[in-house]
Design a protein around this nucleic acid. Structure first.
Lengths: 363, 363
DNA sequence: TCTCCTTTTGAATCGACGA
DNA sequence: CTCGTCGATTCAAAAGGAG
């Protein structure tokens, strides 16, 4: 959906160096379909933490996670969110992940800037770090906020694909997934973890399958070691990464070079009836699949006759298949396609069968 | 822990009428051990919502949940929080429950006022209302914030009691509990629900066991129909309720009169048996155990390829592992978990092996 | 009383498109 | 803009009723 000029101006599938607020300011507005952001959590750790066996926990103590006050953190948040919002297309959306240290401030800032929250999603970790001191509950989840650019945004939501991913029941707002460990966890030459808060690919897989389409542009302003880019590449989405730390950038670039894109068939995803072309009921009459004068039957024996223009008459009611069905049932609305049947060889046949025939021809 | 004079001044185990901000101002400072608050969520619903069968959803349209703007909601939040904080003893703590509509604003206000967040706790509903229009994820959880009066507060945390409640492993920050239905749900003379958002006793049971001791004073400034009071009474804690709606107050008082101390009802609902967790096939794909594009093999050499949403494609058939297996065999049904295998190092491996791996992690 | 099936219901920010 | 029309969309529990 990008024009040539936009596409030319966008540095796709690269990791841009620098501070994300400054770099985002250089990119063209309304050019990005989705933003996934994993900003610093502002953890406020005091001293170091030791396990019961006295070994030291390797916590997040990097300078980039340190802010002088809530106020400073809020200023930072509002700046990067504002820059990010400028880059979103009108129907774009954003995901932000955080913990209780920062997510309330991020959520309030999103609302204040006009983003429209669609869901908050809980990532339940199957294998969280235990609470070694027994002073609080095990912090076993993180929170993601999914928001449209504004209330009017017609955001992408692949409902049927996520439903398929969840064994045929609609996807819920709590996602149970393991943290990033094992081979997936990037390590430096010394065997230490390359990034303290590397997110699992499974998390990004679900986000991108659910809220983007192949060919969409996904921006990650806190790219880190590039989980967003890796999954985007696998799924045939374009990405833009921004990362100011050279070490993380190098790790991400090495990682991305090894990623293969899934083939076209694998990228296809379950779609529902919404994606199908519309078929006017009148077309069934025009094509002679149903004849004017023929009688249709409703679910409880209601009858109506077809007129030459594809409207129905029942009793004193006239109108579309939907309107007559709704009127007969005293219902506020009705899907005429699933309401009415016709007779063929003594059998009741739903009219939706005929619509499916036409759609099959169109495919 | 209360002195004689404080105890004398406190209206214990009663439901006080009136606006909570005004009523709290009349109570003595530093007199309460714990506050549990379920403030209005500011839902901002538009129009009515119908189920696919055309029945109408009885949503929250009460005047008390309506605010003119985020700004108005913030002012309200800061006022009641500030009044509540004055009432807390130095080592007191607060719980606030909310949804994505309001919880970010509440969380930020808590931090701004000097409360110190201890955990955010996710209430995962076993039986949430589905998303009827298929436009978002099922909103299947609510969020609670647990915070000390300030960073120095030596808050109460009954670590071992919660660990015992959780089958001997540390209590996590995600709690899986059913919503309030059935006999527990209070109804008026007409059989309608007495309160639109009654919380389950199991939730309060866990909160009060974990963060109060017998004899503590628990304040609920948005008392509603009195779940907090009922569970407090059962558990031998004192409570103070504030509720401005007379109908809710009467329902709460009738309810409380029937509650006996040490009633085991709440305990029973808290500990439920766990069934074997369902593992969607899609999770094997998300987690990279199987790749999109990879080929699965059936018992007699049938093949199908995996797509990014966890569905299979074989010939012209698309669907779940079960559906495609059944279609290829011309069978009415099929257990895809035992039907399909994948290749690893030249060997055929049943996909069920991978499901067992995931279940082992969850156990 | 027990089983089986049907009905009801729950804190919900729940369209798209053309005229 | 608004307005009218098309037509897509639900899961787990518990209550209630039939046999």
């Amino acid at each position: 959906m990008t024009t040539m000029t936009e596409a030319a101006a966008l540095p796709l599938n690269r990791v841009l160096p620098g501070d994300c607020i400054e770099v985002m300011a250089t990119l063209p507005e309304a050019s990005v379909d989705l933003i996934f952001a994993d900003p610093p959590y502002n953890l406020q750790l005091r001293g170091d933490l030791r396990r019961p066996d006295n070994s030291r926990v390797d916590g997040v103590d990097d300078a980039w996670d340190s802010f002088a006050s809530f106020d400073a953190y809020d200023r930072f948040t509002r700046q990067w969110l504002s820059a990010a919002r400028r880059l979103l297309k009108p129907d774009g959306a954003i995901w932000v992940i955080g913990s209780y240290h920062n997510i309330f401030r991020v959520g309030a800032a999103l609302q204040d800037q006009g983003f429209w929250i669609l869901n908050d999603v809980v990532w339940r970790k199957t294998n969280p770090m235990p609470n070694f001191r027994g002073k609080r509950l095990t912090n076993a989840h993180e929170t993601m906020i999914w928001a449209g650019r504004d209330q009017a945004a017609k955001y992408t939501f692949n409902y049927d694909a996520l439903k398929a991913l969840n064994d045929g029941v609609q996807m819920r707002s709590d996602w149970t997934l393991p943290i990033c460990t094992g081979h997936e966890r990037l390590r430096d030459e010394d065997g230490d973890k390359a990034h303290p808060t590397q997110k699992p690919q499974s998390l990004l897989h679900r986000v991108l399958v659910g809220s983007t389409n192949p060919g969409d542009v996904v921006l990650d302003p806190f790219f880190g070691t590039g989980t967003t880019g890796a999954v985007a590449k696998m799924l045939g989405r374009d990405f833009i990464g921004i990362e100011r730390d050279e070490g993380y950038r190098r790790a991400a670039e090495a990682r991305l070079a090894d990623v293969r894109r899934f083939d076209a068939t694998a990228l296809q995803v379950t779609t529902g009836k919404r994606a199908e072309p519309r078929v006017p009921f009148g077309q069934l009459v025009e094509r002679g699949m149903l004849r004017p004068g023929e009688t249709l039957t409703g679910p409880r024996g209601q009858t109506a006759r077809i007129r030459a223009d594809g409207t129905l008459v029942a009793d004193r009611i006239t109108g579309s298949i939907h309107q007559v069905g709704a009127a007969l049932d005293g219902a506020p609305s009705c899907n005429g396609w699933t309401y009415w049947s016709f007779q063929r060889e003594g059998q009741r046949v739903p009219i939706d069968i005929l619509r499916q025939q036409i759609r099959a021809e169109l495919a």
